[in-house]
């Protein structure tokens, strides 16, 4: 059985609030502790904000995951924005393209267990984060 995926449109700062609430609810229901909840919700907020700032709109897909008996939450962020021309630079701590704080990507990566990013200039960016229980 395919686990259910819940999709949230990311376009306004109200959408960020809705996403944070949903991620928190799903992660809490799985049994995540207080600190991991905040880590996951904060990472999701940073990545969703990147969508609004750099791509205007996109989606976040939240799904429960299971691997070798472990359970977790995965959130996949997808946009069709301008893409990231220099990934190494974007992942560097403190680097900012000028519109952000330079905390977004490297900061979010530190808060989760798995972090994957693919981006194509002119096509968009996909970031997938996973936090295991």
């Amino acid at each position: 059985m395919q686990p259910p995926v819940e999709r949230v449109l990311i376009e306004t700062s109200e959408d960020l609030v809705a996403l944070r609430r949903l991620v928190r609810e799903r992660a809490a229901a799985l049994g995540f502790g207080a600190t991991d909840l905040v880590r996951l919700v904060t990472a999701a907020s940073e990545l969703a904000r990147n969508i609004i700032v750099y791509a205007e709109r996109g989606f976040a897909d939240i799904s429960p995951v299971r691997r070798q008996g472990r359970r977790g939450i995965r959130v996949r962020f997808e946009d069709e924005g301008q893409g990231i021309p220099d990934m190494e630079l974007a992942m560097r701590d403190g680097y900012t393209s000028g519109r952000g704080l330079g905390k977004g990507l490297p900061g979010a990566r530190r808060l989760v267990d798995e972090f994957e990013i693919t981006s194509e200039v002119g096509r968009g960016t996909v970031v997938t984060i996973t936090k295991w229980l």
Binding site: A34, V38, R39, T42, E46, K103, G107
Partner: peptide, 13 residues
């Protein structure tokens, strides 16, 4: 909150 403080530091803020 403690969890918020931990996350802020890990985020680099």
């Amino acid at each position: 909150q403690p969890a918020v403080a931990i996350t802020l530091v890990e985020l680099g803020l």
